[in-house]
Structures are given as structure tokens and as C-alpha cells.
Amino acid sequence: MTVIISLLAAVTLILIAIIGAGTLGLQYLFGIVIPYATLAAFLFGIVYRVVKWARSPVPFHIPTTCGQQKSHPWIKYSKLESPFTALEVTGRMALEILFFRSLFRNTKVDLKKGPKLVYGSEKYLWLAGLAFHWSFLIILVRHLRFFVEPVPFFVAALQTLDGFFQIWLPIIYITDVVILVALLFLLFRRLYDPKLRYFSLAADYFPLFLLLSIAVTGYLMRYTGAKADLIAVKELAMGLLSFRPTIPVGLDTIFFIHLFLVSVLIAYFPFSKLMHMAGVFMSPTRNLANNSRAKRHVNPWDYDVKVHTYEEYEDEFREVMKAAKMPLEKE
């Protein structure tokens, strides 16, 4: 049900763009107003959300240790799994953010007769996740050629690298293939595994459909007969970026669909689970050093509580303590 609703939502968005930018010719709206508005929502939304998180303190020092602590000099401690210094924490975070370290640990459990539990390595989620995110980033950077002038060397270098195999014309980018496979795998996995299907929400399917639609409209414009006039696309982008927006001649409906879906994605981003992008930096189980006994962590909202003092304790038990010949503060 949630799957169908999410799919319908994505289809609706495409129809809106077709009717809006195509049939009704609202190119100014779809090419200028909506991109500006959604970009503003994206930037404002992300900052707003992060600031909101940051306004809640980290009262306690709660890193999850995934390796040996630093104690004796003769026991080698795990600098990246149980970091002691800020630098080591940075290392841990880098592994986590760039290579999804924790997900790499993933296992799957099987209950055999006996009962016997067997744990197997399960790297597909890690692989698909990593493949998707890296491809997405590379594609994003490649798109800079539409957004900056002159195009910096690293964008060209990335294009060359990404088109390494020189198949087809225009050259098929590796990331274009990888992102599609990864997204389809992530979708398939959610639908196939009954556990995942059980707890997946519309909010889990919708971004997948949205990203797939964005990818497919992109492919259509690059690899098929529906090719876009790139100069016109860049002209639009440059106009937007220099706050002199114009609608150049030569933009097709397919481009507006692509642009509209991207606009929806960035507007949706700050208010959805996609905020894990920022959240991963702020997770106290990962971004704190395991040095809580060496360095005091302060809780800003700490308050005094009612405690039971030794005096109250002795007052209650003085007689029996005396009878048991235990030392007393007051006889």
C-alpha cells in the first residue's frame, strides 16, 4: 500500500511537470520560481534542522565502543573503534561517513535446526549503499559543468574517469549505471525482505522512486533521442545562479520534468529522513572520544537531586551498627 502511494506520488509529480511546463507552458514557474524556492527551502531547512539539533546538548558522554579501550600502555587499543583523542575521533567519523564502517559489519542470522544460530556476512546493503551514495556525489559534481563557468579541471577529470570505458556515444558514465543498479537493489531489497516490507514507510519508498525518476529522465536526455540542448540548460542555470534568470530557447518538457523532480527532492530533503546526511555527523555514539574517565564531560542542565546521605543512613541504622560493632560517626 505504502509502495503504491509512494509510486503514485512520484508519477503525480511527473504529470505535474508535464502539464505545467509542457501543456500549460509555465516555464517561468518551473524553470525559475520553483528552483529558487526549493533551493531556499533546502538551505534554510538544513540549517534550521541542524541548529535545532544543536540546541539540544549532549548531556552525557555515550560513545559506543566497538573495540579495545585505551588503558594499559601494553594493551594495543583500537584507535578507530574506540578513539581516545579528537584526531582519532575524526578518523572514526571519516571511516563512518566515507566508507560506512558500521554497516560494513553487517551480518545476517539464520536459525537452523537444533536450534543452531548461524551468522553470515551480509555486505550487499553496505555495497549498494556505498555505491549509491558515491555515485550520487560524483554525478552531482559532474553536473557542475552546468553550473560554473569556466568548468574547473576536477569536473573534467571526473568526467574522464567516470567515462573510463568509453562505451557508447555519448560515453556512458560508470556512475550512471551504478546508481541505477544500486537504487533498484535498494528498492528490491525493501520489497523482497518481509521484515523490511513490514516496517518500511511511504517515506522510505518515495525517495527511491523520486531518485529513480530523476535518474531516468537524466538518461533520456543524455543517451536517447530526447537529447537536451545543453547550451540552453547551462544558460538557464547560469542565469539562475547570477540572479539574472531567463528562460532560454531550446528547453524541452523532459528537461523540466527532470528539473522539477530535483526541485522536489531538495525541498523534501530537510524535512525527511534524508537528513541523515547531516545527522551522521551529530550522532553522540560515534563522534565522542572514549575518554570519559580521563576527561570530565559537563552536563549543562545538570541539577541537584535528593540524595540519601550517610548521616541519614547512620541515623536509621545506628542501633544495629552499634550492636555489630561497626564504626560510627556519632555514638
Binding site: R49, K52, W53, A54, R55, S56, P57, V58, P59, I62, S102, L103, N106, L125, G129, D193, K195, L196, F199, S200, L201, D204, K273, M275, H276, G279, V280, M282, S283, P284, T285, W301
Partner: peptide, 19 residues
């Protein structure tokens, strides 16, 4: 939510990957 960043962040960022 105002006292624990962990609570706020953990309420918001789960992607339900199922790991």
C-alpha cells in the same frame, strides 16, 4: 528532546535500512 541531542537526532535520521 530539548535535553538530549541523541534523542532528537535519533528520532529524525533513521532511514529504516534494517541493518
Amino acid at each position: 528532546l530539548n535535553r538530549y541531542r541523541s534523542f532528537r537526532v535519533f528520532m529524525d535520521i533513521c532511514v529504516r535500512c534494517g541493518a
